[in-house]
Simulated scan of single mutants.
Amino acid sequence: MNKNTLLIVDDILDNVKVLRKFLINENFKVLIADTGEEGLKVAEQAEPDLILLDVLMPPGIDGFEVCQRLKSQQNTKDIPIIFMTALADTINKVKGFELGGADYITKPFQHEEVLARINAHITLRKQQQQLQKQNKELDAFAHMVAHDLKNPLSAIVTITDVFLQKHPINSTIDFKGIKHIQLAKKAGQQAVDIIYALLTLCGVSRQSHVNFQSLEMSKIIDQVIKQQLTSMIEEYQGQIDLPDTWPIAQGYAPWVKEIWVNYLSNGLKYGGKPPILTLGSNLQNDGMIRFWVRDNGMGLTSKSIAQLFTPFIRLHKGRAEGHGLGLSIVQQIVEKLGGQVGVESEIDQGSLFYFTLPAYIAISRHLESKL
């Protein structure tokens, strides 16, 4: 059985000798560092299962800075940290938790308490790692199944569509038979839409790094309307009013197209009769741009607003077909791009759906400050 590895970071080695011996006897592998800088190096190289970190380590960096730097690095951010301190005041405890510390032990140490806390946090971390592994496996399986279902379902939709073009509803073929084939085509298309939504959601959650680019929002929206929403606009006799200019935001264009597709298609389905959608944007004081879609629909209750971005929740079940994934996809995309989503609505006053993205100027200034 592999031993769990602990790293003790304390500048007074006499304080940790007895603790180290006790932990070794409890079947741990114990590493020691006597400065914050050395603790950072050992943690990065050894990636221990848990770190016992002293708060005060003059004259170098203190335990709070060590914790902050560990939590900012990919390979050490999930290692649980237990602060060791003679300080009993609440301020230091709160600061440690705010920086990502998992727990506190106070000097002089009670060995049984230290052991209990160490075992509890190591067990919790291993459970989290197992859950993450299972989630990845489930995500990979879902992606594989969705991808494998996409092609045969698309073929069904295509075949039924070709048949209906050759045999319109006023042809000599049985009227009920034609209607059944139309229903089959509609059901097939709904299944394909769900699969594409699942694949999009899976792709967003899998992608850990996003290459930001400046966005030509007018071009993106024009593509969405012409390439994906033309038939829907005709079906619902909708109207989309656009501003003359857009501010330049930063993001990932394919994902931003998905945001607009979902917001605009929802506005066409659930807006007024006919739906009138007004698009716009505002530059906020925090360096973000707020993009929005206002509809002329019946509005939403506060209870409905609270459920909006939950996967598989459909609020207008009687008005239009849907699968309830669209807004949850929007939320994941926007959060991955560093923004927020939301809605403002009142009954009989329509709804305003919005999302925020970082402005080009804000990111440029941030990059300049790094140089």
Score class of each variant (00 low, 15 high):
G39Y: 04
G96Y: 14
I259P: 12
E368K: 13
Q190D: 09
S364L: 15
Y354L: 14
F291T: 05
A140N: 13
Y252T: 01
D103H: 11
R125K: 14
H180T: 13
S364P: 14
V9M: 09
G322A: 09
K77M: 04
V94K: 14
L367N: 15
Q45A: 13
I195V: 13
M57A: 05
N151Q: 14
H111Q: 10
K107E: 06
W255L: 10
W255S: 05
I159Q: 09
L87A: 08
E346L: 06
L53M: 12
P59A: 09
G177I: 01
Q182E: 13
L138G: 03
V204L: 07
D78L: 02
A155C: 10
N15F: 07
E65Q: 14
F22H: 10
R290E: 15
V204D: 06
S345R: 00
S281N: 04
M144I: 08
I24F: 02
A359G: 15
K93R: 14
Y354E: 14
Q307N: 10
E344M: 04
Q189N: 11
L199M: 12
R20V: 00
D286F: 07
A88D: 15
D348L: 09
F28W: 03
E37H: 01
E321Y: 10
P311A: 09
G324Q: 00
H121S: 00
I248R: 05
K133M: 02
L198Y: 05
I24H: 01
S205Q: 08
P274D: 01
Y104K: 05
E321I: 14
I105R: 03
Q331C: 06
T200N: 06
S345W: 00
D103T: 09
T172L: 11
G251F: 01
Q349P: 09
F291S: 04
L183K: 13
L201Q: 13
G322T: 09
N135V: 03
G100Y: 06
P80C: 01
W292C: 05
I313Q: 12
